[in-house]
Design a protein around this nucleic acid. Sequence first.
DNA 1: TTGTACGCGTTATCAA
DNA 2: TTGATAACGCGTACAA
Lengths: 337, 337
Amino acid sequence: MATIEDVAKLAGLSRTTVSRVINDQPYVTEEKRQRIIQAMNDLGYVPNSSARRLRSQRTETIAVLLPRLTNPFFGNLIEAMEEKASEWGYQVIVCQTHDSKKKEMDYLQLLKTKQVDGIIMASLVNDWEVVEPYLESGPIVFCNEYMDESCIPMVHMDHKQAAYEATVHLLEQGCKQIAYVTGGPESHLSKERRKGFTSALSEYNLPFIEDMTIDWAMDVSDGQKVFHMISNEFTQVDGIFTGSDEVAAGLIYEAASSDWRIPDDLAVVGFDNQMLSLLMVPSVTTIEQPVKQMADKTVEVLIQQLLHPGTLPAQKYVFPHQLLIRNSTKRKKLSIQ
Amino acid sequence: MATIEDVAKLAGLSRTTVSRVINDQPYVTEEKRQRIIQAMNDLGYVPNSSARRLRSQRTETIAVLLPRLTNPFFGNLIEAMEEKASEWGYQVIVCQTHDSKKKEMDYLQLLKTKQVDGIIMASLVNDWEVVEPYLESGPIVFCNEYMDESCIPMVHMDHKQAAYEATVHLLEQGCKQIAYVTGGPESHLSKERRKGFTSALSEYNLPFIEDMTIDWAMDVSDGQKVFHMISNEFTQVDGIFTGSDEVAAGLIYEAASSDWRIPDDLAVVGFDNQMLSLLMVPSVTTIEQPVKQMADKTVEVLIQQLLHPGTLPAQKYVFPHQLLIRNSTKRKKLSIQ
DNA sequence: TTGTACGCGTTATCAA
DNA sequence: TTGATAACGCGTACAA
């Protein structure tokens, strides 16, 4: 492994001069610059990143915390983040918390130990008071998840409003008994969604029925289970608000081999507008999130803070969503009425 | 930022002793150990990772190169890899090459610059001769992709055999004109698949027709385009071998709004057994890959090399696949015959 | 325009 | 059982 010292010796110059060439600094004669470049090539020299990090106190690496990559929403998110970060010369470390408080804390340690310059939290299961101290070690930005009491930049959409709109849509289709199906931990985000759901209900003078709430549904197979629960125990349910397209898909898949008709017996809305939701038969009404824009903005905001600390207010960046009405809720009965 | 020096001073001991405590080394009195632990807590001391890296020449980080995370196969792959790596205390850097030779090389540089200890290549677009020199800087393991001329560990399944079986299945269903649809660069892997495809054809005395080959289909929307090409230009086609479930899904989706019946007019096989392939109507016949096992083995092999260099032969680990026959190829006509 | 010398924070060696 | 000291490889005041 050739070091800067080796290059200097071979070129008959000092480490300093070599360093200047490496970092494109002025005050080096063209002739010597060439001699050094030659020497670097001859030796196959590459600057040692660990030494640079120690010296500069910067790693040019960020960590992205998220629950799990299996969820395509996060897959898309990190894909866009990696691309954006790479444009700025930053590496991205993937950190799957699996909604575990401990794992989330472990990954936050990356900031303290200086393995990363900053952190994006798209997973948030710990309370703010335990996260906050890490801010001393570097910037943190929330993406998707959010928390009012914190004072850091947040990039997300209005989940409350989105849930509200989806629920109103179900009600407009004539649903009288809507089940609320969600998954993952009780995060601030999921609370917001629930608020939107209930506020739509109360607008239609309907109560929120705790019995018709399921809080463990995260993927397709959970969706299948949900359908069986409903068709066995809650036969009066005629609409479902779902926190994910996967759950909605599992539900619809299972309904196909029953005598329940979707949307007429059961209207279903998903969330995220995954490819899946378009391809299902019937296609799934869902909420479109501007994933790429949110990812780009998040990385931008974080890197901005790294490059120019303290110049950015702890702003909220709220992105627009869109309710995509598809066949899983379009009731024919109604259009005839 | 407290350093080891600060801790030493506060505890009234030397850096060396503190270092011993940090690294759980013997030869420290219990009393002094406690004093040091106390001091560390008081100062909120955390060892600086950059300094450790420089000193130890190890980063405890690996890079995973892959084409893109949008493809759920790679999403699942890296999810499993991150989990496994995390068990060993290793960080994972995501590197999306987008099938670009340049990006692939750029990411390989991480090894040279000592930003990572080792690399997993699940993307492989460069020739072996340009990849090989990087082996000097650390171990590389192939996953999914492979290359006979190389001499490093490879973890994958038998794509040739898988493609062969899928094609034979189409032929058994009575297909006479099978289109070959693939995407991405001409990798060794895709060549293997094609070999399997052609060898099945020739076994049934059918020629490989270059005209009925499409090499740019990678996702759902490409699948839709493919269907239109076929229904407009190649109406004689009655079966399709597809390199991905996404393409198969797009094709099937588009066929639904035409007068083509699947599988009777057109039988379709996918690849990877994504959730999607099960949920489509009709469900998609596909090849199941043992993603998690492959991911685990790959990480295991790489870390093995990091911990005990030179103890492992450059073996191939070939995992079994499985042809899952579903409705997109099960012809009713035939079962009556 | 170039070089000397120090420090970034750790750990390993060796002597006490 | 403990500590002084020398690396690890690089960047940068400061001096020349």
